[in-house]
Amino acid sequence: TFTSYQLEELEKVFQKTHYPDVYAREQLAMRTDLTEARVQVWFQNRRA
């Protein structure tokens, strides 16, 4: 599960791009204290 802060950050990036590159995902992962893999999976699920 994600915190409301994490979801907010993820959604913010999703609004800009549905396909963030690895750099964007790593920045987001650091900001949200998630792994890059978790961020990647979240985007895959969000796009589905």
Rank of each mutant, 00 (worst) to 15 (best):
T1H: 12
T1F: 11
T1I: 12
T1V: 11
F2D: 01
T3Q: 05
T3C: 06
T3E: 06
T3G: 03
T3I: 04
T3W: 06
S4Y: 09
S4Q: 14
S4G: 08
S4R: 13
S4H: 13
S4N: 10
S4I: 13
Y5Q: 08
Q6C: 03
Q6P: 01
Q6V: 05
Q6D: 02
L7K: 05
L7V: 10
E8C: 14
E8S: 10
E8L: 10
E9P: 00
E9N: 03
E9S: 04
E9Q: 09
L10F: 04
L10N: 00
L10A: 01
L10P: 00
L10E: 02
E11T: 03
E11M: 15
E11I: 10
K12F: 05
K12P: 01
K12W: 06
K12Q: 06
V13N: 02
V13H: 06
V13W: 07
F14Q: 01
F14M: 01
F14L: 02
F14S: 00
F14I: 15
F14C: 01
F14K: 00
F14T: 00
F14V: 01
Q15A: 14
Q15E: 10
Q15K: 10
Q15I: 12
Q15F: 06
K16V: 14
K16A: 11
K16F: 10
T17H: 07
T17Q: 08
T17R: 04
T17W: 07
T17F: 07
T17D: 11
T17N: 13
T17I: 06
H18T: 07
Y19L: 03
Y19E: 05
Y19N: 06
Y19S: 05
Y19M: 04
Y19D: 05
P20K: 06
P20H: 03
P20V: 03
D21E: 14
D21M: 03
D21Y: 02
D21G: 08
D21T: 08
D21V: 03
V22M: 11
V22F: 14
V22S: 12
V22N: 09
Y23E: 10
Y23C: 09
Y23F: 13
Y23P: 05
Y23H: 12
A24L: 14
A24V: 14
A24H: 07
A24R: 05
A24M: 15
R25D: 00
R25K: 04
R25A: 05
E26W: 13
E26G: 08
Q27R: 08
Q27G: 06
Q27D: 11
Q27E: 14
Q27M: 11
L28A: 02
L28R: 13
L28E: 00
L28C: 03
L28I: 08
L28H: 02
A29G: 07
M30E: 09
M30H: 11
T32F: 08
D33L: 10
D33Q: 13
D33R: 10
D33G: 15
L34W: 13
L34A: 03
L34G: 01
T35G: 04
T35A: 05
T35S: 15
T35M: 04
E36N: 06
E36A: 10
E36L: 11
E36D: 08
E36W: 06
A37T: 09
A37P: 07
A37G: 09
R38W: 11
R38G: 07
R38P: 01
R38I: 15
R38M: 15
V39R: 00
V39C: 01
V39F: 01
V39I: 15
Q40L: 14
Q40M: 14
Q40I: 09
Q40A: 14
V41T: 13
V41P: 01
V41L: 15
W42Q: 00
W42A: 00
F43I: 01
F43Q: 00
F43H: 00
F43D: 01
Q44F: 08
Q44T: 08
Q44K: 12
Q44S: 11
Q44W: 07
N45S: 10
N45P: 01
N45D: 14
R46M: 06
R46D: 01
R46K: 09
R46A: 07
R47P: 02
R47L: 07
R47Y: 03
A48T: 09
A48S: 09
A48H: 10
